[in-house]
Design a binder for these strands. Structure first.
Lengths: 239, 239
DNA sequence: GCCGATTTGTCCGTATGTATC
DNA sequence: CGATACATACGGACAAATCGG
């Protein structure tokens, strides 16, 4: 990011994760940090608010800004921020690859429109992909992309990374993602596509993603094998 | 809330939900809203940033602030903000009640400490409760409360509402909640306590909650029957 | 293509309120 | 009570993106 407040956020976050500021200790006061970063009061406060929203600190009026972050022990697959499949795998040190199961251009009928939130008649790419990690088929993704927002999509691109295509080549910026997690019974397609072992259910993440122009350009259903699924979230009151 | 920015946020949110500002339309410009609410542009911008974090709007530089919120069709149980069981039931129009299955004071051993994030030796209340909705046992809650932060807890209080006790009587303010969703095989306890039908798995929400003093005072494991579980989340890039 | 008006994004400085110690 | 630290609010300045003439 190019902004000062975001740089400060990242720096403070790294200093917490590196252990310079320990769990249940106070970071330097606002005045000291303003001095150190040579920025204004307001800019520093914006960085602190991001730090708080991410669950790193708890500012306490009259006392200071307390660190409430500890290194996490859990491994596996963690969602919660907007992150690509490739990024998440790399962060967890996993060998991963993607296979494309189908690729089609469709017009949304009433059923698809209802399911995805697109309008009837919208031209969409419908893509089915399977995510393999350490040799096992663990995630079955069904994507619907709005053609007008993501023109020129090809099977080769979706096998690589759609996000690096849209953010890199097209220059679109991803902004907001609304997600819903549910548990569903495994379908026969799930059983065919995934290495489900004896599991009879899957975790389904439905996500609707908007770009920085406010265009809803993607709805995805991610169907996960239960034992390999984790969803993480930080909620803050008053924001 | 007592603050101006929060009042403005709530007002704008309500105006969007009531349909005054429609999906994919622009709300009035910053200058107009500053005029209308008689506040400074910074205060208004703070309200807008909260609106954005909740997935209501997408501000677009040079154009305006676009509404990206639509009424949701899904019913059932929706999480995603910090919300009590009673609040969530009321919002969904459900008849609900809670039964207390066990209530004990314990000291955290290494196993409990590992599981909950408390320190070995911490004095805790351990509470097991079952949430019934429309006559069916759907959620099995196992709570661990830090005794020093929530003194004087009784079975009668936990049967009613712990949050109204701690926020009302004790005067504690809840601030941050870190949550993890996983899918687990149903245990024999799950089967005994819940009306599981033929489901063999449960959705488990682990949440660690901090108060406004930065004290981690609660860890809860909420075990849900799959068909009655929904978790909702809005993620925004750059925050 | 340029210019100016409009609108959001970032940053700064200051003042005042509130909680803690 | 005074000093410290965070919380809220105001007003001003300039940058960046968009749009219409």
């Amino acid at each position: 990011m190019k902004s000062i407040y975001y740089d400060i956020f990242e720096d403070l976050r790294d200093r917490i994760e590196d252990g310079e500021f320990a769990y249940q200790s106070y970071i330097p006061s606002e005045a000291q940090l303003v001095e150190e970063y040579e920025c204004s009061h307001n800019t520093l406060r914006k960085a602190l608010s991001i730090l708080r929203l991410h669950g790193y600190v708890q500012p306490i009026q009259g006392k200071g800004v307390l660190v409430i972050w500890k290194p996490d022990t859990f491994a596996h697959f963690v969602l919660g921020d907007i992150e690509t499949f490739a990024e998440a795998c790399e962060r967890n040190g996993l060998k991963a690859y993607t296979t494309v199961r189908s690729f089609a251009q469709i017009a949304a009928d009433s059923h698809v429109a209802e399911m995805t939130g697109f309008a009837v008649g919208d031209h969409l790419y419908r893509v089915e992909r399977v995510r393999h990690m350490n040799g096992a088929a663990l995630i079955y993704d069904i994507n619907y992309f709005l053609e007008s927002a993501v023109p020129g999509l090809t099977p080769a691109i979706v096998e690589d990374s759609v996000y690096s295509y849209v953010e890199g080549t097209i220059g679109m910026r991803i902004s907001t993602s609304k997600r819903t997690v549910k548990i569903e019974r495994a379908t026969s397609a799930d059983r065919m596509v995934l290495d489900l072992l004896d599991y009879s259910m899957v975790a389904v993440v439905k996500s609707q993603t908007f770009n920085s122009d406010g265009v809803h350009f993607e709805t995805t259903f991610s169907r996960h094998r239960p034992d390999f699924f984790t969803f993480h979230d930080t909620a803050v009151r008053g924001y």
